[in-house]
Design a binder for these strands. Structure first.
Lengths: 338, 338
DNA sequence: ACTTGGATTGGTAACGATAACATGGATGCC
DNA sequence: GGCATCCATGTTATCGTTACCAATCCAAGT
């Protein structure tokens, strides 16, 4: 027996409780001043009526949505997922909710997504990376809310930044590889410029080799991002055929590095004795695989946590100028390299 | 030079274009009847003013949010991510946007999340799994929107269902393992009942063994979910110590199966000659690892796609009674088993 | 010339909550 | 006791868009 009538509103709850709608509204907030007694009466009346608080009305009137908009390249990437989870955990304590979208590693898609997200009037917007279309930059600048760029250190930040230099992180690995004697070092990454962090990593690789007086002819393009295990395996196959004397390879992520490792295993090529492998991102697989992967920990969760902290500070008015949190990635040496 | 004035509204755009606000509203919709000329004039005036459409007002007045609420146990799980991505891709073509939350494998958390999501007035809500608190069930039933339970086949569905039987899927693997001669078969899964799909898989495992006249004493609890690679490796260690004569082990997911595999590799135990391993979920790692993992493909993306289809049909009024889409998981035999 | 009908545009009120201000009563302090 | 203060609650107007209905215009048909 289900009446098909309009769902109850605060006015209905108010009537039933014998108070004004305003009091009902207050009862549903955490901190507003309502007597304990009244609050309980209101809430139980609401429960009886099956009342569900209507955020849409609240959002319009109060000009607050308690949304934090977030864009990531892919929803299916453990690094970004870690960042989002940490971010979500921290801001949800304050009643803020993540509104997530993914760009598929495409700045045009990112622009569309940013526009769509801004229409929802979030309290702040977090974007992954520091490269955007001009219109996206403009939209973000004019949004009138805190903008946080992450996973990168843009030269001209739009607002706040919580990130690290992808190029420098890879350079650290190159430096180490050269210091232990590797000279013929290759890089496996995505095509062209879609994944801007991947592109930065490759650029860092080339620059680092150059500083050691080494050329970088061994660049393997593994296809359009996302570059995952399968692409890594294929790329390793190409590398072994085109440059069989390669001594070490740095991959754009642990996923491709693991794929590359398995290709070596399939071909009976000893890792690291015949070829060393380095990854990026400190994914769980790198710690567990046999042999375990040398990699770079970019502290994905910490990026999320720091971003949350920054957002809360800005919303509390505790920070009036653009914040810049620099994460220092860590080189983790494991079994796939010396 | 940044004026701190109120952001422009449709009224401002209307004034500048020399039309009524109503016409501006129409120009921002896809199909409304406005002349091409007028629409372009409105849109360019909007761009000049830096006008951003305000969904919050639209949502309230039109009583539509174009949100599809989705709950998943963990944001960091490739299976659920695949489902959400497919779902998102299909519904976004119709202007619908995913509003995602995660429950951390906890029904109490799920209840809180469902309540929070429903306040946002989504057009439909998709939940993972078929086990909920009584209050969560009630909230969903009374929400007045389509409810879709996924990744499970609940006995008493709340509304629509797009899923499969976790127990039957595992049974298929058990049947195969028995048919090729394994008898001493173990199961690695999470503690107790938090991950209800994991629990169903274990129950299916026990029931299947029983039907073959076999006992199931080899149940290894790998800790609270999520059970990932590390937990799988630890559990395999326990298994090898407590039941060294085990011939095969079925793991609650490919992640734990891979962890288990690596533990064998570390201990020099031959897979599958000394012990066979089966996983669940057909994660990429299972196809790439050496040896590759025998697993069950539950068609995560297809669940998302079918869910999207179902939602669109219901919203279009093409489906008036509860839909039930049953996915048939596929046993994939690879190198970790006969 | 006059009606008919489709296409385009406008006017008005309303969605359901809450910000801002007001009020009545209890409490505290000198 | 008198006045300031605080607490709990009420009143009114409003957030920005769009549903609903009305009006206008022009082309086509009789």
């Amino acid at each position: 027996m289900h009446n098909i009538r309009k769902p109850p509103t605060m006015a209905d709850v108010a009537r039933r409780t014998g108070v004004s709608p305003m009091t009902v509204s207050r009862a549903f907030k955490r901190d507003s001043s309502v007597s304990q007694e009244t609050r309980e009466a209101v809430l139980s009346a609401a429960e009886e009526l099956g009342y569900v608080f209507d955020s849409t009305a609240s959002n319009l009137r109060s000009q607050r949505t308690d949304f934090i908009a977030v864009t990531i390249p892919s929803i299916n990437n453990a690094n970004f997922a870690d960042t989002v989870r940490a971010l979500s955990d921290h801001v949800s304590e304050r009643g803020l909710q993540i509104l997530l979208g993914y760009t598929n590693y495409d700045v045009a898609e990112e622009e569309r997504l940013i526009e769509q997200l801004l229409r929802r009037k979030p309290e702040a917007i977090v974007v992954t990376g520091g490269k955007h279309t001009p219109r996206a930059r403009k939209l973000l600048s004019n949004a009138g809310i805190p903008v946080i760029e992450t996973w990168d250190l843009p030269e001209e930040p739009i607002g706040h930044v919580v990130g690290f230099s992808n190029a420098l992180a890879v350079r650290e690995m190159v430096d180490h590889f050269v210091s232990v004697g590797y000279r013929k070092i290759a890089f496996i990454g995505g095509d062209a410029d879609r994944d801007t962090r991947g592109t930065d990593r490759r650029a860092g690789f080339i620059a680092a080799l150059k500083d050691h007086g080494l050329d970088a002819p061994r660049l393997i393009a593994a296809g359009p991002p996302p570059i995952s295990m399968r692409e890594g395996a294929n790329a390793m196959g190409q590398l072994l055929e085109r440059f069989p004397d390669t001594e070490a390879v740095i991959c754009v992520s642990d996923l491709s590095a693991f794929g590359a490792l398995t290709e070596c295993q399939r071909r009976g090529i000893a890792v690291p004795d015949r070829i060393a492998i380095g990854g990026f991102g400190d994914y769980e697989i790198g710690a567990i695989s046999v042999p375990s992967l040398t990699t770079i920990n970019a502290f994905a969760s910490e990026i999320g946590a720091k971003t949350a902290e920054l957002i809360l500070d800005v919303l509390d008015g505790k920070l009036d100028r653009p914040g810049r949190v620099t994460i220092r990635p860590d080189l983790i040496l494991r079994q796939t390299s010396r």
